[in-house]
Structure formats: structure tokens, C-alpha cells
């Protein structure tokens, strides 16, 4: 028999088992780490047609989010402002700057500025901005500290579990409506719990987890 199977084959099954374990282990780890929106979507920072800096406008100048995104409290969709909004100031500030060429053109001709959308949910998800901001969910919960981003990048994964984390326990994430647009506000966990629990009770905030809450 020893002529058919040399001695080293004795350890072959063990070697194959170890090899298969290593391969399966690293593949699983790799897929879990890479094939998820936490890797795929987070960090998306496209080059925009106009180098608008949220850090300067919302951060340094302290302009409220709603000066430009004025429909966010009324609509399911938070609008990109019209070019005339920019020109309310930029008809005087940086009046002839070449970086604002597209904006001036757009205001004159009505041709839209080709801004690149960063934050996207699938088309079968019906996220309503107005409902969230009017009930104390701050912009920062989904968009991160945009007021410190020179160029906007996606900070959160926008996976279904990302939404559900909040829907399962809204008290951890809602704040007073007057602070919704104050992205720098730091709330201690105890305070958040106290405040959140009160608001959930007072405003009858429901922990919606049925499919049709978001999917239609």
C-alpha cells in the first residue's frame, strides 16, 4: 500500500482542512468588510461643478441650513437652492469670480447647475425630510457635520439597519426642534436620554418598524 500513497499524504487531509479554513475565513472577513455600504458609500465625495464650501457658508458665516435648503421643513425633499439664492449675496460678494460663472449663467438663462447628488437612498425608500426635521431629528444624524466640510462627503452608510437603529429607539436621536439645525450641539448621553424620552412621549413619536413606513 505504501507504494500507492507516499507517507506525506498522511497529513494531506489536515493541510486541506487548514487551507480551506484560512480561505473561507479571509473570504468571509473580506466580504463582510468590503461588500457593504459602509465601505461602498461612505466617503463618496464627488467633484462638484462649483466649488461651494459648506464650511465657509454654514460653518464660518453661520448661515442657517434653511437659508438655502428652504423647503426642508415643508417637503419630503430637501431642495438644492436656485442659482438666484446664491446671487442674493454674490451679486456683490465675489461679483466677477470665475468660479461662480456657472451660477451667474444659471440665474440668467435658467439652465440648471449640474450639482452631483451624494446622498442617495434606493428609489423604493420614501424618506421624508420634513417629518424628520420637524420632529427633532437633526441634519447631523444622517449627513454628519456638513458645516465643517469644505467639500461634502457621505459620512453615514445609509443602510437599512442605519435607519432602523434610530427607528427602534428614537429617544436616542431626537432633540429640541430649535436645535435641529445646530449641527455642533453636543448632548451628553444622560441628557439625551432624559430629553429624548420626554420628546418621544410628548410628541407621541412612534417607533415605526413596519415595512410600509419606508417602503411603498
Amino acid at each position: 500500500m505504501s507504494d500507492i500513497f507516499p507517507k506525506w499524504t498522511n497529513r494531506l487531509p489536515l493541510k486541506i482542512a487548514i487551507g480551506a479554513l484560512v480561505v473561507a475565513g479571509t473570504l468571509t472577513a473580506g466580504i463582510t468588510y468590503y461588500l457593504t455600504p459602509a465601505y461602498g458609500r461612505v466617503g463618496y465625495q464627488p467633484i462638484q461643478p462649483v466649488p461651494f464650501s459648506h464650511e465657509i457658508h454654514a460653518g464660518q458665516l453661520g448661515i442657517d441650513c434653511r437659508y438655502c435648503h428652504d423647503a426642508v421643513e415643508k417637503s419630503w425633499f430637501s431642495n438644492i437652492p436656485s442659482a438666484t439664492t446664491c446671487l442674493n449675496c454674490h451679486n456683490q460678494v465675489l461679483k466677477d469670480d470665475s468660479r461662480l460663472e456657472l451660477i451667474r449663467d444659471s440665474a440668467k438663462t435658467g439652465k440648471p447647475v449640474p450639482w452631483v447628488q451624494i446622498h442617495k437612498v434606493p428609489d423604493y425608500v420614501y424618506f421624508n425630510h420634513a417629518v424628520h426635521v420637524n420632529r427633532g431629528v437633526s441634519c447631523v444624524e444622517c449627513h454628519g457635520k456638513v458645516n465643517h466640510m469644505d467639500e461634502v462627503r457621505q459620512e453615514k452608510s445609509f443602510t437599512m439597519s442605519f435607519c432602523l437603529d434610530c427607528h427602534r429607539d428614537p429617544a436616542q436621536h431626537i432633540r429640541h426642534p430649535k436645535d435641529v439645525y445646530n449641527l455642533d450641539l453636543e448632548i451628553s448621553p444622560e441628557e439625551q436620554k432624559k430629553m429624548g424620552t420626554k420628546f418621544v412621549h410628548d410628541w407621541n413619536v412612534q417607533s415605526l418598524q413596519n415595512c410600509s413606513a419606508c417602503h411603498r
Partner: peptide, 25 residues
């Protein structure tokens, strides 16, 4: 994870994520 990318996220499985309906703007 979280490293900056200029390119849009790759959507391997379409999953009806992008539908031929109109979205605003």
C-alpha cells in the same frame, strides 16, 4: 472603510434601486 472616493458608489446588484421614475431636480 470611509476612505474618500471621487467615483460614485458601485451598485453590483441593481435590486430596483434606481427606477425609471422621476425624482425632483
Amino acid at each position: 472603510r470611509g476612505s474618500t472616493s471621487r467615483k460614485p458608489p458601485i451598485e453590483i446588484f441593481p435590486d430596483m434601486d434606481r427606477q425609471p421614475k422621476l425624482r425632483p431636480q
